[in-house]
Design a protein around this nucleic acid. Structure first.
Lengths: 231, 231
DNA sequence: TTGATCCATCATGTATGCAATCACGCCCTT
DNA sequence: AAGGGCGTGATTGCATACATGATGGATCAA
């Protein structure tokens, strides 16, 4: 999966230590291995990654703008713990960003890109039948990324990806219900159809419901994740 | 002007050196005193700000995600110099973010907030008459910020503010033409009216044209700013 | 016993030093 | 004379050391 298209930060040829640590932390947070509220001690992380504090500090500062961690000026950093209001806000924005991406994709996607999206959708059908939630989750991210790419707007893709990443810890268990898996796939199908017809407004509307429907399931998740904050 | 509402990064009580330097650099870049392409030497900046390299490094890393500077892993940092495509992308996204903010504001603004927006609009009328471009420019930023606040969505406000800031260097001279000043103010009036009526769709449409109209003027600016890159 | 104040400890902020890497120019070869 | 390899200078990446502010507990007073 291509990470950037016209991003202002070109892909670093060889990741520096700070970037490696940042990527590692981001991965742990998004995957839920580091729960919201966990304090991120600099020396501890330095030891854990076999480096000094300097790269760790850079990594934390690098992650702060992404919203995955919160750094208080002289009080250290913790895994971000957005409240319900913030989550709802981000959720609303994400729906709109995705709607915009879908609308643009309906207008601007090349035939090859459209075929790629169709292939992805077809592949996901098998995962639904197999009930493979983990595979579907990964494929789902890829599906939406294909949508961003099809929108031909790198900046929009960045914002959408960042928002999605930031919400990821709170959506981890979202697809657990088998019915949700099937519904998600059906909604993808509707989005895909709208795009194939070049129906920008329709694609946008479909994706809004796609995200909106998940909101209910997701509200529960937010509550669940508020409790355990011990490392 | 309140800087954040429900931002995940709470306002630092006392800015650290790195933050001060970052703010200073951002200010210089947004104001156009540091032109796109200018190399940002760590030791030079350290001397200029009377500190060591460490805070400067942090400041640069802090600014990188905002898009104001571009840092290549082992090749230093330069003031970001987005190409025309990226600018157009960001412009489109900004229009949509602002449209979303206007729509939400039309629905969610409190009477006090609305009055504040009205006052701001009225104050700007005087600046138009006086032809005070500098004052209008500052007031314009405030106007849009009031819109974000009225949308009651801190995350949306963050994204919109960040995007606006990033485009600022390329819109600096945009309001120079006296006619543009008057048109801008008239468009603000139309947006305000739509909000007063609670017409979300109308407000969104108005702000799209507001941004869209400026796009033409702005395209020229992008070209102009591509040439001079000497410090 | 409860409360606040002071102090010790620790974590972060900053500075400095060393090593690795990149850019540029020179020299050599063909 | 043109092209390529190589060495030198400069800059960044990382580590370590010091300074400053924050946190927690112990002590003392009421």
């Amino acid at each position: 999966m291509p990470r950037r298209s016209t991003s202002p930060t070109p892909p670093p040829p060889r990741p520096t230590r700070a970037e490696a640590i940042a990527a590692s932390l981001a991965e742990d947070i998004v995957a839920g291995r580091l729960k919201p509220g966990t304090p991120l001690d600099e020396v501890g992380l330095a030891r854990a990654h076999g480096s000094s504090r300097t790269p760790v500090r850079e990594a934390l500062r690098q992650l702060a703008p992404t919203g995955l961690v919160q750094v208080a000026p002289r009080r250290g950093a913790v895994v971000a713990i957005p409240d319900a209001t913030q989550l709802a806000e981000m959720f609303l924005v994400m729906a709109e960003l995705e709607a915009m991406a879908a609308a643009l994709a309906a207008l601007a996607m090349t035939p090859e890109e459209r075929r790629g999206l169709e292939r992805q959708h077809a592949a996901m059908a098998a995962m639904v039948r197999a009930g493979d939630v983990a595979a579907y989750r990964a494929a789902n991210v890829a599906f939406h990324h294909l949508l961003y790419l099809g929108a031909h707007n790198g900046y929009l893709g960045e914002l959408a990806t960042a928002t999605r990443r930031r919400l990821a810890p709170f959506r981890a268990a979202q697809l657990e219900a088998p019915d949700r898996l099937r519904r998600s796939h059906a909604e993808h199908g509707a989005i895909l159809t709208a795009i194939q017809r070049g129906d920008a407004a329709g694609a946008a509307a479909m994706i809004r419901t796609h995200i909106g429907l998940t909101e209910q399931t997701w509200a529960t998740m937010a509550e669940a994740l508020r409790r355990p904050s011990a490392a």
